[in-house]
Computed example of a mutant assay.
Amino acid sequence: MARPGRAPRRAAPGLAVARLVFVALVAICLLTGVAGGLLRLGVVIPATASSEWLGRAGLAHAALMICAFLGTVIALERAVAVKLRAAFAAPLASALGGICLLAGQAAVAAWLLVAASLVFAWVNVVVVRRQSAPHTQLLLAAAGTWLAGNVLYAMGEGSGAVLPWWFAFLVMTIAAERLEMTRLMRRRPAAPWLLLAVLGAMAAGAAWSWLSPRAGGVLYGLSLLLLAWWLVTYDIARRTVFAQGLSRYMAVCLLGGYVWLGVAGVAWIATALGHPWRDTALHALGLGFIFSMMMGHAPVILPAIARVKLQFGWPFYLPLAALHLSLAVRLGWGSLEAARRVTGAQWNAASIALFAATIAGAVIAWRIRSNAQEGA
């Protein structure tokens, strides 16, 4: 006889189909975004060489990765949390925006992203009304930066104006979640105010980058550096890294990401001052920091979104190590030799694929273990 509580409750057929649709849309946006990023470095996946969407994916690489993939995942998480059907309009619109980008409907895609961020902002207003706290207010501010970036994108502004806002959305969302976790440890009363000041500087740098890329870029990069300092100083990860199991893994992901956040800050300033560090600035932030955070939080967030359970184990460290090593090759050695840069980018893609395989294996491992326990 099955033991109660051993397996997640079976979803209604309609909900199961909806989850599969979202999983498929997110997977398409991620895979095509990665393929587009490789294309920008001259690497073409053989099976996609003659596909029309590949060139579009290359042009829309940032929009696919930040808005259509990560934006959809974050919006899904928030929709599940607030338990409002209307909230799912945000991730649906952002995912469909990615599909429209691949279909060559760039204008439709851009306004779908605007619609997604508008609904997402409303969802965060609901969250603040339910629980008004510094971290929920910061989540609402992060939603506002996504909306600002999407409006500029729909207006046809270039990456110099749009990317700071898009990255601010992701960085501020992560910072808000880490701010909430600092409540679990003793901290100086000024710590939350310091964080708000740093993130205020980030928003100011994003806005200034539209008018003055040099001055705005320097301020933006400085805010990334200061945020890395704040996280290393106040985040609970510097204590939980000495724990065991999942807590230690998450801490390793976080602390490694904070290092890359500091690298991104230096590279962003250097780029604004005219040095050829743009690839380092974008990918130390997008892959080194943000994807490290994603890898660390996935074992906790994915079960809530997809209603699956994972068997955590040492294999989770493999894609994490591969990500950091591939970034070191791409942004370190690759800054001196173009071929190594391409190799590093290919390894970046491989580390993401390895992480997806690890997640799938963890789901299967948990089901095998659960069935064995039920049969005992």
Rank of each mutant, 00 (worst) to 15 (best):
R6C: 02
P8S: 08
L20I: 14
L25T: 14
L25R: 02
I28C: 10
G36L: 01
R56F: 04
A60D: 14
A60P: 00
A62W: 03
C67E: 13
F69A: 02
L70R: 01
A75D: 12
L76D: 00
R78N: 06
A79Y: 04
A79S: 07
A87C: 07
A87D: 10
L92Y: 03
L102Q: 00
A110W: 13
L112H: 06
F120H: 12
S132I: 10
H135M: 03
T136I: 09
G149H: 07
V151C: 01
V151D: 02
L152I: 06
A154W: 15
V162G: 07
F167Y: 14
T182D: 07
R183N: 00
P189C: 04
A190R: 15
V218K: 10
L227E: 05
W229K: 12
W230F: 07
D235N: 08
T240M: 08
V241K: 03
G245W: 04
V252W: 05
C253S: 06
C253I: 05
C253T: 09
L254I: 13
G256D: 08
W260P: 00
W260I: 00
W277E: 01
L282Q: 09
L282M: 13
L285M: 11
G286P: 04
L287I: 07
V300P: 11
A304D: 13
A304N: 06
L310C: 06
A322S: 02
L325A: 14
V329K: 15
R330F: 05
R341I: 01
T343G: 12
A349K: 06
A372M: 09
